[in-house]
C-alpha cells in the first residue's frame, strides 16, 4: 500500500514539475522544477527496488542540471521572465506529440505483448549494482564500449575547443600559409 501511495505521489509531482519546466517563462522556475523532477524520478527506481539506478539517476542528473544552471546564469536574468518567440506552435505540438506517442508505445509494449520478456531477470541474491555490472559486461558490452569511446571523443574535443591555442591549427603548418599570403600581397603591390 505504501508503494502505491508513494507511486501516485511521485508520478503526480513529477508530471506537475515537468509541466512547469515546459510552461514556465521564468528560467529559475524551469530549471528548479527540472532538477526536482529528475530527483523524484529516482524515487521510482527506489520503489522498484533498483536502488543503484536510482542513486545513479540522482547523481548524474543533479550534476547535469547543475551544468545547465551555469549556462542559464550566463544567458538569462534569473529574476525576470523571458519573452518567447514562437514561430509555429502547430509544428511544436506535432513534433512534441509524436515523440510522446513513440515513447508511450515503446514503454507500453511489454505490458501488452507476451513476446517481449526480460532476458536478464534480476537476481534477488545479488545486489542490483552487481546485476547492472553483469548485464553491462556481457550483453551490452559493445554499446558500453562504444559509449565509452564516444565520451572519450567528446572529452578530447572539449579539451581542444577550450584549449589556449585555439587560433592555431594543430594539423597544418600555418606559417607556410602566412608566408604565401605575404608574398601574394607583395606581388599585388
Amino acid at each position: 500500500m505504501y508503494e502505491q501511495i508513494a507511486f501516485y505521489l511521485f508520478s503526480m509531482l513529477t508530471v506537475i514539475l515537468f509541466l512547469i519546466t515546459v510552461m514556465s517563462k521564468n528560467v529559475l522556475y524551469a530549471m528548479t522544477s527540472l532538477a526536482s523532477g529528475m530527483v523524484l524520478i529516482s524515487g521510482f527506481f527506489f520503489i522498484l527496488g533498483a536502488e543503484f539506478l536510482g542513486v545513479v539517476q540522482l547523481i548524474v542528473y543533479v550534476g547535469a542540471v547543475m551544468a545547465l544552471y551555469s549556462f542559464a546564469m550566463m544567458f538569462f536574468d534569473a529574476t525576470r521572465s523571458i519573452k518567447e518567440k514562437n514561430t509555429s506552435s502547430a509544428l511544436v505540438f506535432l513534433l512534441g506529440g509524436m515523440s510522446a506517442l513513440v515513447l508511450v508505445l515503446m514503454f507500453a509494449a511489454p505490458i501488452f505483448s507476451e513476446n517481449i520478456q526480460a532476458l536478464y531477470p534480476m537476481h534477488p541474491e545479488a545486489g542490483n549494482a552487481q546485476d547492472v555490472g553483469i548485464v553491462l559486461f556481457t550483453k551490452y558490452l559493445i554499446p558500453f564500449e562504444v559509449a565509452a569511446v564516444m565520451l572519450l571523443v567528446a572529452m578530447i574535443a572539449g579539451i581542444i575547443l577550450a584549449g589556449k591555442k585555439m587560433d592555431r591549427s594543430l594539423t597544418q603548418d600555418m606559417s607556410v600559409d602566412m608566408e604565401k599570403e605575404i608574398m601574394i600581397q607583395k606581388d599585388a603591390k
Partner: peptide
C-alpha cells in the same frame, strides 16, 4: 539500502542546490 555510500554522496551533492538557488534568486 545496499548502496549507502553512493546515496549519501548523491544527496550531499543535491544539497549544493541550496546555495545555487539562493544565489540566483536573490537579485
Amino acid at each position: 539500502i545496499n548502496i549507502g555510500i553512493l546515496f549519501v554522496l548523491g544527496m550531499m551533492a543535491a544539497g549544493l542546490y541550496g546555495p545555487l538557488l539562493a544565489g540566483m534568486a536573490q537579485a
